[in-house]
Design a protein around this nucleic acid. Structure first.
Lengths: 207, 207
DNA sequence: GTCTATAGCATGATAGAC
DNA sequence: GTCTATCATGCTATAGAC
């Protein structure tokens, strides 16, 4: 049972996540994190002896789990996968606009910054994306072949991340809504080709 | 006719573009740019009195034009738009792997970093994306209705940018190849529904 | 253990020598 | 006009007071 007042460490993590998401990894200073979190500077190095890198890795992995739960919660319980995906993108558009286009995806922002400069953090972002792909592929697997499901999962994440980039840049929810329509169309086409449920493995051919 | 040896200014711009692309905007220092370009530090402020921001804006807009020409060159001359899109994604996958997953898209990397912190650069990235969307929409317009064409253009750019994120993070060309297959499927479906050429405006219904 | 003060270094920007 | 030396400020990280 977590204490009613968030711990110092928890505040540092959530503050770091928010600042990384908005200003990037290199664009966020540890001083700013401790100030915004209302925690002394030394607390960061007490809880994260590995410094900025260890804090960022922790944030990437925990944020990855939180986002996954959030998305699966949005998708779950809908009998129509295309409609569920469409709804999820609409929710993302509403949330991003409500956050004044500041809070999109921590992982993607950091991923592009560190892919060529920090191997530890690059691997952390790759692990998070792979977790998302596997979870989403399992979800899509209810309606289609596992190979098709994995590609749908990858495409969903890719077009979502790309839509975040365009929506944040233009301060307009339209790209996210367009992405939702396109992705729903892709899902519907894939599900229509590969009938559900039947434990019929092997190649599927529409003849 | 440009001189055989690139000018100081040109080298600064191309070096900045490369470093922004690999290390991000905040992750790149002006000192590093001048050193890598083999130009004196003062040259940056001589050619770009507005400092780092003006240099970045110049790089964003010129890089935007270069990428557009590159993509249109890849797409042009193919009678089948889905096949052309598929080929373009394959080329992107090959190029990214050849560049050791360092050189993807300057615009997207900078866009996520500055969207909430630098209004001038945010607008520059938004302008570039809108230019791309319009040019691609015109290209798709050869085969389908202009509204459908614009959404295809947006989706192409979004899934490409998202694929860059996943491919760079995982150091694997697969996401780009998956994105190419998904996008080709979307294009084929859209083109099949809305027959080409005929100047028949208004709603299209497949009956 | 919690926190403050500071070291050592890099940054963006500028002033002024040549 | 071209370039160098330097400024003030920010960073990450650490040492050590309490």
């Amino acid at each position: 049972m977590p204490p009613p007042t968030p711990s110092n460490r928890a505040r540092i993590e959530s503050t770091a996540a928010r600042l990384f998401r908005r200003n990037g990894y290199t664009g966020t200073g540890l001083k700013q994190i401790s100030a915004d979190a209302g925690a002394p500077f030394g607390s960061i190095y007490h809880h994260f002896p590995g410094g900025k890198q260890q804090l960022a890795e922790t944030v990437i992995r925990s944020t990855g789990r939180e986002y996954l739960d959030l998305v699966l919660g949005l998708l779950d319980g809908d009998p129509d996968p295309a409609a569920a995906v469409h709804r999820a993108f609409e929710a993302a558009a509403t949330d991003l606009a409500a956050a004044d286009y500041a809070d999109a995806c921590t992982i993607a922002t950091v991923a592009l910054e560190v892919a060529s400069t920090d191997e530890v953090l690059r691997v952390a972002t790759a692990d998070v994306f792979e977790t998302w792909v596997q979870a989403l592929a399992e979800w899509f697997g209810t309606w289609c072949d596992s190979g098709v499901a994995r590609e749908l999962a990858q495409s969903t994440i890719m077009i979502l991340e790309g839509a975040f980039v365009l929506s944040r840049a233009s301060r307009d929810p339209e790209p996210l809504l367009v992405a939702g329509r396109s992705m729903a169309a892709l899902v519907r086409a894939a599900v229509d080709q590969a009938p559900p449920g039947r434990p019929d493995h092997g190649h599927v051919r529409s003849s």
